[in-house]
Amino acid sequence: MGQVLETGIAMGSLYSLMALGMVLIFRTTNVVNFAQGAMAMMSTYIAFAFLTSLHWPVWAALIAAMASSLALGALVERVFIDHSSRPSAPIASLIITLGLYSVLEGVATIIWGANPTAFPWTLNGIFWHRGHLVVSTNDAATFAVTLILVVGLFALLRWTRIGLAMRAMAQDASTAQLMGISLAKISSSTWALGSALGAVSALFLLPITYLQPTMMDTALLLAFSAAVLGGFSNLPGTLLGGLIVGVLESLVGVYVSNQLQNTVVFALIIVVLYLRPQGLLGRHDIKKV
């Protein structure tokens, strides 16, 4: 049971990171980024390319992957999303991110093929164990990195000027603009940050999913559910939602059936949303109309 929870929390942390990225982007720019997983997948392939083709050391390849994910987020925002100059219908940006999702997977398939590949470097071994409870090194690193990123994200939002501007833009973009804040800059920062959170998640999922173009499909769906469960504009709720989804998935996998994992998770989410349509920690007044 302890082991099941441990695995669940590790997976849940990664869904939370993905989901926090999505929610951050949604709150600030009003776009649900369905390409979140595919963008993260591209970053892991970039790390792979640096490791195998250019023979960079692991740390440099990981830094390159993170830098590329920040840049990819900002680039996607600049090219496809930028609402600051030309407002467009929310449905249009939804289609754009869905389209981007399949285009990125297609591009990855053309370049690297559809077969799952093992990433040439993983965190092996056991970090800590007592009795039947084993914490692998990958899980321990997942916990540590998630904790650092979550605390860092909340500190950024609470105490820095970019964080304050993100909160302001989420609340009332036109007044923020009037304060002299460039919505374009906030918007690209948010996308860069959101994309990087997804990339971290993807790098830690590699030992489970292997490197393949569709590696983040399930994670995207679960992260999206986690975000919805949390209220979709509420960051602590999203964190909680991710952990719940991860633990549920793990419990169902062990005690019910591996095949039913997603089915049961989604069924429970539907029940929760039926009882609390605004999400676990969400409030009714999510967006001002």
Binding site: T160, L164, M179, G180, S188
Partner: peptide
Amino acid sequence: ELFHSLTVMDNLLLAARGHHPAPWYQEL
């Protein structure tokens, strides 16, 4: 048109010129 969930301090900071974010690679 103040930001309702923010404090008085945060509302003023948002307007202060030195508090306006630069491009993402400098801010993040």
